[in-house]
Design a protein around this nucleic acid. Structure first.
Lengths: 198, 198, 198, 198
DNA sequence: GATGAATGAGAATTCATTCAT
DNA sequence: GATGAATGAATTCTCATTCAT
């Protein structure tokens, strides 16, 4: 009741958890408020509407995704292409296994995007950025002479699809060795286009 | 509209369309009934509750998925492993591009599964079946001496993930050459483990 | 619970009374429903929204006003101009004294019209019709040679204003002899323009 | 904005405008506060409650009405009865055309009076004062031998009703020549009871 | 087979009001 | 003098569900 920042944070965190677990429609502000132990109108003090809360949370998530998937291409050199690629996937797998809620919530936004243009546009942007990451890595690798310029657009899209779906599969009850699968993906895709010294 | 079977069918079809477009929570029985031009209680004549309608629809979808993804391993021989794999993906891509609603609705069930054990269990089964398809193909290919026995479990899981995510990506606004991506996936995965005569 | 027409009528009547007594904002659907002894959603079965209930009631009132203020000009002849005018006012005064709620509710619509174009337009129409009634009577009287053609537009507007405000004043606690006032208005206005035989 | 008096004035002025435009129920303290640029609780520093703000504003209006409708009977003499009466109406019409908000707000209090005895009593008093003004003028005119003592109570009430409704009609979209109507009213009412020299 | 009429529960939102600071 | 933070109560409205007919 005293600390503004704290209440705000609590709302965001509780919303994050509840939305990720039950979706937007099944999570009422009454639920959120009573979970935190505040009154419903208190939420309205911080957010103009439920939609605004959902949107604010989305922006937070987007920012986080962008910071997480950021890769410094400067680090890339002829020798470490593969290990960088391994690492990108492995760190995502690790994070996802630790914070299942994150991707879960993200999926709710994906469905929300089918009925709301704002989310639809934003998500398309994110997905494109995401595809670009792998294309940029492979393109740079070509310039570095680490791999041959062969079908690299398609190959990078393939990697992106695998990467993306691994994080989704982790949400299911199916326990696979996702790290190995990712390494296999990287290996398979690069096999044959790596230069000899690699 | 008088005919029992017909009304039932109409309810199922309308539910299919509306659920896929707006999700379960955003589709009320009132909407469905008025879309068909029947009264709301009429739905209760055919389905005990909204949940039961959702479940019945799910069972229909599951049956359809199983019939669609069925592959007759008998057809497989040493020479056509790759083309069979190509075909599996391509026919799925074709179908999906024609009937976006199907996968869209499936995604709603995926999210529903996070808060309902019944769906969670069913979906896990489906995903496992799905993983098995590719494992069975590759295993058979090994027996047929078409490919070497090298990491084939992981490889088949990799193919399954790509296959699965292609159908999901088709739903987004991002237009990629999914057929090429799938061929690349098959090629990459089999590269190096194919026997010479292949 | 059984009779559709009855429930509808009850809602309309209760809304009529409560709206006229407390205005639209201070009358909640909960109030109306509990006054009738039905549930709140029952009202929604008959009216799409509170606004629609308000509008339906308005249309009823407008129809009633039109039927009440209708005057058959055919009845008018050179001898009865004054007595017809007396009668118009007296019957309105009588009705208003019997059904205070009616004009009270009408006043709420007048205020509503300041924030809703629909009501604003409708009310302007009604007021104009109303002004026309007196103009038509006086014009006809001129044709009948009952009165001289002298300032009759202004005179008819004057009568309309008096007529209108009498019904409003009746709502207040001030008891005046409204019939006498109305007769005085008619007499004053016609004085000097009546033809000799009148 | 720092100054106590000034903030008080701003609240009163903003309340005046907003209440007159949207009525009491549709004007929230939040609206008023944000319009002024102060916090909602600040209003509570000056007024115990919303009701008190409404009441204070009412008292201000009543005072203004009384000052506006005050007529110095001393000015009246046998020659200027009509011109004084013309003037009373014309200045009211002029003022009203300039400040529509005033009468609009007054109307809100009229409706409020139907559910609140305080306003009901106050308004009755005002209306009576108002009726008295015209009665006093005509009575004085009789004493001055300007007009005959004939039905002057009813006549003065008639004038009051016309006067009152003119200011109300100005609020509607109907543009009439209110000055002419008023003159017609005065002329009609006095016609026949004026003394010859008049 | 189907519906008209109705309901209880619960949703988002707004408001006047309070109080520690 | 003024406000940030919060609340209880109320509002409109929607929904899944029921049941007599």
């Amino acid at each position: 009741m005293r600390n503004k920042e704290q209440t705000y944070k609590q709302i965001m965190e509780t919303a994050f958890t509840m939305f990720s677990e039950k979706g937007f429609d099944q999570t009422s502000l009454t639920h959120i408020a009573s979970e935190i132990g505040i009154s419903k109108p208190a939420i309205y003090y911080y957010f103009k509407s439920k939609d605004e809360l959902i949107k604010t949370l989305f922006e937070m998530i987007v920012a986080e995704i962008q910071s997480i998937t950021f890769i410094d291409l400067e680090e890339l050199d002829a020798k470490n292409v593969k290990s960088i690629l391994y690492q990108v996937g492995e760190s995502a797998i690790l994070r996802q296994e630790k914070d299942l809620k994150f991707n879960q919530l993200f999926n709710h936004y994906v469905l929300l995007s089918t009925r709301d243009d704002y989310y639809s546009e934003q998500l398309t942007k994110i997905q494109k950025d995401f595809l670009n990451i792998f294309e940029n890595i492979l393109t740079k690798a070509v310039h570095l002479n680490a791999i041959k310029e062969e079908n690299i657009v398609i190959k990078s899209q393939l990697l992106a699809l695998v990467f993306d779906n691994i994080t989704t599969f982790i949400l299911t009850d199916i326990k696979l060795d996702y790290k190995k699968i990712w390494r296999e993906a990287v290996d398979s895709v690069l096999k044959g286009i790596e230069h000899d010294e690699q």
